[in-house]
Simulated scan of single mutants.
Amino acid sequence: MTEAASPPTSGTHRWVSLMVRDLTTAQRFYGELFGWEFDAGPTQLGPYVRALRDGHPVAGIGESAAGAQQVVAWLPYIATRDVDATAGRIRECGGTVAVGPIEVEQVGRLAIASDVNGAAFGLWQGGPRRSAPFYGPTGTPEWNELITADTSVVSKFYSVVLGYEAAPEPAQPEELDYLTLRLDGRPVASIRGVGAAALPQDRGPHWITYFSVPDVDEGLKAVERLGGRVLGEPEVSPFGRWAKVADPEGGNFAIVRPPGR
């Protein structure tokens, strides 16, 4: 899961993880959709596998305890040099720390928190949780985006807690409530304000992960063939052609073909 290396820069998105009710079904769906292979990961929090693409770890999938009542959702893990201090800032800024900080099999420390509007995310202190670049071939995470009612308050939360500069994205239409989160001028994630009425009732504010595919239309066909659902027609943005989908247990994510690929 980790190699000996210097800790990543605080605020970078280092990992995405999914908790499901049926790990075997999830492995079959994502394995066929993205060409992932799997190996065993840390079992401290229950059954867990790492997804590999071309031998590189790109994501993790765990199985929830029997009877656990939770929404199936992809969770981004954000790097921090001091998870305890970051957890403290989260509480001070009106967020919640639900799990940890805890040690994970002597390779790092993690916490699971939620922002001031209730969207869950993870924190990771330790070495890189994947050896591949964030941008890569089919099935690698390209981007994380926060879907929330509006960007005004929550952008200040992430700026204080993780040091982001939140600014409008010039490539997006001015009428959209859309901000890009940057570190030292480099974009690392985004926040999309959709209005309270547009938030899904089963999950409210939430992060969504975009995974790369070579062809969005073929990807949508594969999602349905494998038991998932298409949640909207493909859209074109400055960041590529994309569409929102769900896995067989309802876990939302997006598939995207970035420009130039």
Score class of each variant (00 low, 15 high):
residue 60 G to M: 05
residue 45 L to M: 15
residue 46 G to P: 10
residue 55 G to E: 06
residue 94 G to R: 10
residue 65 A to I: 09
residue 68 A to S: 15
residue 78 I to H: 02
residue 19 M to L: 12
residue 51 A to N: 09
residue 136 G to S: 10
residue 33 L to V: 13
residue 7 P to A: 11
residue 114 S to L: 03
residue 40 A to R: 15
residue 63 E to Q: 15
residue 90 I to P: 00
residue 44 Q to F: 08
residue 100 G to Y: 00
residue 83 V to K: 00
residue 121 F to W: 04
residue 99 V to L: 14
residue 144 N to W: 04
residue 12 T to V: 11
residue 79 A to L: 04
residue 57 P to Q: 13
residue 79 A to C: 07
residue 24 T to S: 14
residue 61 I to E: 04
residue 114 S to F: 04
residue 50 R to I: 07
residue 50 R to L: 12
residue 96 T to N: 13
residue 65 A to P: 10
residue 24 T to Q: 15
residue 25 T to C: 08
residue 87 A to P: 00
residue 148 T to S: 09
residue 21 R to M: 11
residue 18 L to N: 09
residue 71 V to W: 01
residue 146 L to A: 01
residue 57 P to K: 07
residue 144 N to G: 09
residue 11 G to Q: 00
residue 100 G to T: 02
residue 39 D to N: 14
residue 146 L to V: 00
residue 66 A to F: 07
residue 104 V to F: 01
residue 77 Y to N: 02
residue 138 T to F: 08
residue 58 V to H: 06
residue 145 E to T: 07
residue 98 A to G: 14
residue 40 A to E: 15
residue 125 Q to V: 03
residue 130 R to W: 02
residue 89 R to V: 00
residue 17 S to L: 00
residue 23 L to Q: 10
residue 13 H to Y: 07
residue 16 V to H: 10
residue 90 I to T: 04
residue 53 R to K: 15
residue 29 F to E: 12
residue 53 R to L: 13
residue 129 R to K: 08
residue 133 P to V: 06
residue 67 G to D: 06
residue 137 P to F: 08
residue 26 A to F: 05
